[in-house]
Amino acid sequence: MLTLTNVYKTFNKGTINEKKALNGLDLHLEDGDFVTIIGGNGAGKSTMLNMIAGVYPIDCGKITIEDKDAQSGVEKVINLSRMPEYKRAAYIGRVFQDPMKGTAAGMEIEENLALAYRRSKSRGLKWALTRSYRWGITKKEKELYYEKLKTLGLGLEERMTSKVGLLSGGQRQALTLLMATLEKPKLLLLDEHTAALDPKTAKTVLDLTGRIVNENHLTAMMVTHNMKDAIRLGNRLIMMHEGRIIYDVSGEEKKNLHVSDLLTKFEEVSGGEFANDRMMLS
């Protein structure tokens, strides 16, 4: 489905602040994979997601995604490596860490949903001048939004013409999640999307995430700092360190993981590094 081949990214190249964020990253996702990603700060988790989404260009390597052609139904490989961010959005849905980032505060809930509903729709002048939103969202669309909002269980379906700025962080994050999946994406990227929420809301949003991903059979990648969540959710877990994947586990083996296993793994990595440092000094 998604393939990253030998991806490198260095920030501030050639300066004293040089930071190798991705260091020859290889990753392959199968259709329907729900991957949780853990790793220390600066391991390259967010960078990886940002590279896939196209926020920054990669230095070298290749990112491809497989997509069915809408007409012929033939699977084809699309090279995302140098595609601008807004074009990749046709394949990728995203939820950010910052609840403010995923929705437009000054616009109504239904307007936000309408924008999201047209994420992968065709472009062009005729499309651009088609009237929609607010004065022209069809009744059928409104019903769809109503039903979808209802599934969140937050009562937002009764407030469809409220400005999104009036919602709480948790409500906005749930809405963003709905927006990212309203038009089924090939790939869903979740970048610590519950990190800014209180524990109870975080759990609600996380459960919702699991449900939406399962119900729609989405392929998803979720960065988290919570190891329990990383084990509980998804069918595959990867651990990153210094811009590489150092641990990749799936299926039964993943189900049987414990937090202590992951911690041991972490220590192994940093311990190994410590040993290397000793060797260099001696």
Binding site: A53, E85, Y86, K87, A89, A90, R94, F96, M100, K101, G102, T103, A104, A105, G106, M107, L115, A116, R118, R119, S120, M179
Partner: peptide, 15 residues
């Protein structure tokens, strides 16, 4: 309108 509101969001939605 959405660009003035939240550029990151609207780019993530493919505009």
């Amino acid at each position: 309108r959405a660009t003035g509101n939240n550029e990151d969001m609207i780019r993530a939605l493919g505009r």
